[in-house]
Design a protein around this nucleic acid. Structure first.
Lengths: 230, 230
DNA sequence: CATATTTATATGTACACACATAATAAAAGG
DNA sequence: CCTTTTATTATGTGTGTACATATAAATATG
């Protein structure tokens, strides 16, 4: 190995771990020792090891040293899909259709998720995403009108609610969860599938500076897979 | 802000993005400029921005500068669950039961996944994971006997196949995917649920130095959720 | 002997500097 | 005017140094 970047070193250390040079839970040499072995500065080793630690492959502790993580494959990063891109990635023609757009008092589960007061209204927005004219995913969304009142006059013929929100609301954090549910009547008819079919669901709530902006369930037809390398 | 670590600066920049100081896709000031503004070295700003880039919040390009990412919430990190821990996290008593353990020629789909030759045998291992004596998840696994022949004599009364593999095979990479399926007859009876119930499935294949070690499907009962903050 | 205190040590972080690299913008050449 | 070459510029990375901080281990204390 001629070039010694923190990346090559990181890769090299990873391979040594994979080869079993250090067992699970074992202590690996200190930064100083590795620096000498690789013939580089301790800073460089530090960066390499920090990288591995970020990925969850090693655990580092001051004074305690660095040790190989006990639970090898532990974390996966998933790209949260954007429906339009998914469809277009397969060469399909994307289109969406708003099935419902009403302001009303949401059910309790949604109310708590959006942090609304009792009796407050929110915008309910149901959309089907189509690939080449055929249903691909069904989106059931609630939007907090206090945070984004402008959504009332948004042009949903052109952009989807998701894309509009992304462009309008600066930046947001939130949470996601994945689960499986049986298709209800509404969803089944919108997706043109059978009632009771197993659907993959992405449930997502986004917030901005402590205020909840929107919560959404995205139902995919049976067979859909969310994939990731480790 | 008295202390200026790369972390505080990173947080500060994040907040400025969230407040909308720089719009989506906008160029943010260069490292040199920010370093002066925050009164720190360029190196420190570099680390802060790299961190944001790793998370996918900004995109960096040499000469092109750093710009706020167009698609805000883009990636989520999930902890790939270990069933025993999940059960014990809820205060439940974990137990597992091996339903099947046979060596046989696997179907084509499994054969290609494990990279086996035609006619080669593999170990099929089906397990139910129980929480307080009640079915929690069903595991259907195939193990490549060429890579881990010792598994034939592993004590599966005590440890689950997953834990045994984790402890025995040094370190591994692989892939995961999530999906939803309707419960088949076998799975339904093992999980004591109705046939056709919507199950959440984690599908995982692990490999070691280019050789496939094992592939597994983990079926969770309806209602199970995999959660992550963004 | 159990508990508090100190000390040694490995990682964490910041800085100033130098040079590498990619990509754009400007200048030179045909 | 188009193409090629040459700066310019912002990020990427490595080094050596200094000090901060957490914590395991050794030591002192009651």
């Amino acid at each position: 190995m001629t070039k010694m970047t923190h990346q090559t070193i990181r890769q090299s250390i990873l391979e040594r771990i994979q080869k079993g040079e250090w067992a699970l839970g074992d202590l690996i040499p200190g930064e100083a020792a590795l620096a000498e072995e690789y013939g580089c500065a301790r800073t460089t080793i530090n960066r390499a090891l920090q990288g591995l630690a970020d990925e969850g492959l090693v655990v580092r502790k001051r004074k305690g040293g660095t040790r190989v993580c006990n639970m090898p494959v532990r974390q996966a990063r998933f790209d949260i899909p954007i429906v339009r891109e998914q469809v277009e990635a397969f060469g399909g023609h994307y289109r969406h259709q708003v099935l419902r757009k009403v302001e009303k008092v949401p059910p309790l589960s949604i109310r708590t998720r959006l942090g609304l007061e009792k009796g407050a209204k929110a915008l309910q927005l149901d959309t089907v995403h189509l690939a080449d004219g055929r249903p691909f995913a069904y989106e059931a969304r609630w939007v907090n009108l206090k945070v984004v009142p402008q959504i009332r006059s948004a042009p949903f013929d052109e952009v989807s609610a998701n894309e509009w929100l992304v462009q309008t609301v600066p930046f947001s954090s939130g949470d996601v969860s994945f689960s499986a549910v049986a298709a209800g009547k509404d969803v089944a008819s919108a997706l043109e599938c059978k009632e009771g079919d197993a659907l993959f669901v992405i449930d997502r709530t986004t917030s901005l500076a402590g205020e909840f902006v929107t919560t959404m369930k995205l139902f995919y037809r049976e067979g859909y897979q969310l994939y990731s390398r480790l």
